[in-house]
Simulated assay, not measured.
Amino acid sequence: MDRLTKFNVRNGIAYVPEFLLLIGGLFCLVGEWLGAATINGIMVFGVLTIVTLLLWQNRYLALAIAVILGAVSVFFTLAIFAEYSEFPPGSSDAWQLLAGMLIFGSLLGISLIMPRKYFR
């Protein structure tokens, strides 16, 4: 209960990356559940992992999430670069790939920012 009483705006801003990941995971989970009437087990595991991180604030769990998220983001960023070269210049599909680049770039940024507060 002591952790909840020390919560203020400055501490809340430090947890923005975790909350963004949680909101994104819940959005994907609910979207797939409503659209296909199935539940993705990997997304359930991801959401539960982020909730566990927020509750227990384990530094090794934060580091594991950051490393996995960073590696996946770099992999998909490289895949986007490989696919981008196959589209003709000025194609609308190429612009959609660049929008995906923004998503994976932001996930890479989150993976770099998130574990810093646990290792101070």
Rank of each mutant, 00 (worst) to 15 (best):
L26V: 12
F7G: 01
Y118N: 01
Y118K: 07
P88V: 12
P88L: 07
F104G: 02
F45A: 15
V9E: 08
F19H: 09
Y84L: 13
L78C: 13
I80M: 04
R3V: 07
G25M: 10
T5I: 12
I103W: 04
G41I: 07
A79I: 10
F76L: 14
G70C: 06
I113N: 08
L107N: 06
G25R: 02
L34Q: 13
I103R: 07
I13H: 00
T52R: 05
I68S: 10
F87E: 07
E32K: 15
Y60P: 00
F45D: 02
T49Y: 02
A36D: 12
A71Q: 03
P89I: 11
N8V: 01
A14S: 13
L21S: 02
G41M: 09
D93M: 11
A36W: 02
L69I: 04
G35C: 01
V47C: 10
A94P: 03
M1K: 11
R120Y: 09
R116K: 15
G109A: 10
T38W: 00
G41T: 09
I50G: 01
A99C: 07
M1V: 12
E83Q: 13
P115N: 06
K117A: 07
L55P: 01
A71G: 13
S85F: 12
F119E: 06
L29F: 09
F104C: 05
V30Q: 05
F104V: 13
A82G: 09
F75Y: 14
Y118P: 05
A37L: 08
P17H: 06
G100F: 11
F19A: 14
F81T: 06
W95H: 09
L61H: 00
S73F: 02
I50A: 04
V30A: 10
S91Q: 05
E86M: 13
L21A: 04
G41P: 00
L108R: 00
K6F: 01
I23P: 01
F75S: 07
L20I: 15
S106L: 14
W33T: 11
I42E: 08
G41L: 15
S111L: 00
F7T: 06
T38I: 13
L48V: 13
